[in-house]
């Protein structure tokens, strides 16, 4: 079953799309089911001024992507290190076991952003 929060975010997605001149583009895949999340990050120094995403996945994955991308904006790269799956899950009203790993995908995306940035510098 889908929670009301998942449905809400699915219906009102934020930050969907891509950023042409993004400093960081990170892609993560859920190996079990193939859900794919790609996040574009625009930086001003260390601070994330904008973020957008593309998603191939179930409704919960779409909602999780929307939520986590929103969490990125306005934070510095070191600040986003603290974004964990629990926050994403909580923001979606607590995900059922079936959908719990969509929050993992979101957390993985955050890690991938940080990794990509580290590899660059």
């Amino acid at each position: 079953m889908l929670t009301d929060e998942v449905l809400y975010h699915f219906k009102n997605p934020q930050h969907q799309g891509s950023i042409e001149d993004a400093e960081i583009v990170a892609s993560v895949v859920n190996p079990a089911c193939g859900d794919t999340l790609k996040v574009y990050v625009k930086l001003d120094g260390d601070r994330i001024t904008d973020a957008k995403y593309k998603i191939y996945g179930c409704a919960a994955a779409v909602a999780a992507s929307s939520v986590v991308t929103g969490m990125l904006i306005g934070k510095t790269l070191s600040e986003i290190e603290s974004i964990k799956r629990e926050q994403v899950s909580d923001a979606l009203g607590g995900l059922s076991p079936t959908h719990a790993h969509t929050a993992v995908l979101a957390e993985d995306a955050v890690k991938a952003i940080l990794r990509t940035q580290r590899e660059k510098s």
């Binding site: 219906k11 859920n30 079990a32 089911c33 859900d35 179930c58 076991p97 079936t98 959908h99 790993h101």
Partner: peptide
């Protein structure tokens, strides 16, 4: 469904319980 059309799907997350 958001556009008022009801269908069903055979897709379900293979890493979940369904």
């Amino acid at each position: 469904d958001l556009e008022g059309i009801a269908v069903s799907t055979g897709s379900a997350c293979s890493s979940g319980s369904v």
